[in-house]
Design a protein around this nucleic acid. Structure first.
Lengths: 135, 135
DNA sequence: TAAATCACTTGTATTTTGCAAGTGATTTTA
DNA sequence: TAAAATCACTTGCAAAATACAAGTGATTTA
């Protein structure tokens, strides 16, 4: 994925080359909404990503400037993955996915409050959410 | 892709099962912005999708209720693919992809006007764009 | 009636994914 | 201080998905 050359000049196509596969977007979701930021935590997500795929996707996302990897301040055997600004800028997109999904799939209990908040004031939710991630 | 079972209850994961692969989103892009609606037209897109993959993705999207297939009114050898309401509702999402991409990739000449329009009044652009597609 | 158009399908090689079992660096436990 | 545990991966292999090239069969135009 990381070494695929541009298929076209289309902005959508180029974006999809960077993060447009299932696993990448689930990793981004975990970083954005679930406070997940270590390899072991990603592995615990319910979708059960394979270890080699996770390693490969983390590397791709890092090479594409969407996440960074640094040593965990509390445990030198762990690494801390974080969204870059480029990654955080995907926030509005992920919000739209949630809004679309709300129409066609049951909303799990733990996401209901978030969706209510979005409906109350989408702009504010996005602004605050992104600000928090950029801290 | 069509026959994959739910990996989890997550709205994002479920959405990605329906349209979250590169080719599906490029097909949706063509239907939304490029006035492309026949098999032969999809084949002409610059990303060069393979014929069997195109056939398989069109079927998946149809099974997922995102597009419909009908006989072309002017030529009975052709079929006309259209976005359903469910498909049209992906419009805001695709707009966000364009906005993100604008930050990180060069914008092709033919997309510049659209982006200007979005920046002038995003809500209006989305509302009008969706209304046109639902006609 | 023959050639062209259109939307696919089929066959096969290549690539990617998924699964299970390591590995090696640190870190805690005995 | 040696042994076990934790953590982030890598490796090997089978299965699935993709890419490419070459059909096929139903209309439709010449």
């Amino acid at each position: 994925m990381a070494n695929t050359k541009k298929r076209s000049e289309c902005p959508i196509s180029n974006s999809l080359e960077a993060w447009g596969d299932k696993w990448s977007l689930l990793i981004i979701r975990d970083l954005m909404f679930n406070g997940v930021c270590t390899y072991g935590d990603f592995m615990k997500s319910p979708e059960k990503i394979a270890t080699n795929i996770l390693a490969s996707r983390l590397l791709d996302l890092e090479e594409n400037g969407i996440i960074t990897k640094e040593i965990h301040p509390e445990n030198r055997t762990k690494f801390l993955y974080k969204l870059t600004e480029k990654g955080v800028n995907l926030f509005p997109l992920i919000v739209e996915i949630n809004l679309w999904a709300e129409k066609y799939y049951p909303v799990p209990e733990e996401r209901k409050e978030m969706l209510e908040e979005i409906h109350r004031d989408k702009e504010a939710f996005i602004k605050n959410g992104m600000a928090k991630l950029k801290e």
